[in-house]
Amino acid sequence: MREITYLEAINEALREAMEREKKVFLMGEQIGAYGGAFKVTSGLLQKFGPERVMDTPISEAAIVGAAVGASLLGLKPVAEIMYMDFMPLSMDQLVTHAAKLHYFSGGQLEAGMILRTQYSLGRAHGAQHSGFLPAWFLQAPGLKVAVPSTPYDAKGLLNAALKERGPVLFVEGAMLYKSKGEVPEGYYEVPFGQAEVKRGGKDITVVAISRMVPEALATAESLASSKGIEVEVVDPRTIQPLDKKTIVDSVKKTGRLVVASDDMKTGGVGAEIGATVFEEAIDYLKAPLVRVCSPDIPVPFAPPLEREYMPNAQKLEQAIEKLFP
């Protein structure tokens, strides 16, 4: 199968969706002629025109608010928020309004919209352009959250997101944009709430999120050859809904759980995953839960400090080794 990048996969999914359905339109800051801050929407204005690719002012609340309004009349807006750190500016519309509209109205209204954003941890973008903040969105029933880690998942999840009747937050990893992988041409879906075991293993479960998925796979390779430890890498792919069953089944098999994610440790996604396992499989655990995450401080700017701050394959490997004395 052909290989394309994560970025190309998202661009292709958007283009195909717009060809398929008139109701899909894009909006965001400099997404038109400029093609987006990261070039994800490159070429789409030229192909579909300004009525379907709306360049907006720097106006995060209005971008998401207008997306909510358009979705109420049956449009399918795909809005881009340039950095995940900017989400609080649009949080009101996404969490307080969009997520609740379907429910509030007893099913009469739908706010089926996608909010694409990315996090740039690892690019020396500083503390207000690097945040990975997915746990904020776990307390917003009605909102779904996708965190694709591969080009295949990115395109498939975006296709599935377009069929949702409520809002979807689609979090891209900027460090993954250039990563390559097999992606089918044409339409396919990766369903929400379905984790994928990216690598099978019997000794320990690593639930890895977004950028930490390829890191975890590297760790698994290394540990298999150096120590003979077989790591099972589970990628939830969506954290809301969370495929608890795949995670719990894996832990029941391996008896050990590590969560690897770029978000901060306290109150992060790892806490929710750990709690789920404690609720449903505590008797199977042979070792304490370990979370390999970012420390609870804002992201430092200086590249060596940022490298020290971030979780990575090596840190994950060390954490796992400690569980096998």
């Binding site: 379907r52 608010g65 309004g69 358009a70 979705s71 009101d92 519309q93 307080t96 309004h97």
Partner: peptide, 18 residues
């Protein structure tokens, strides 16, 4: 105040889609 951008989005849909 939050109704204003939403109303703008509805108006966008009326104008450019419907």
């Amino acid at each position: 105040g939050t109704c204003v951008p939403v109303a703008a989005g509805v108006a966008w849909a009326v104008k450019n889609y419907l």
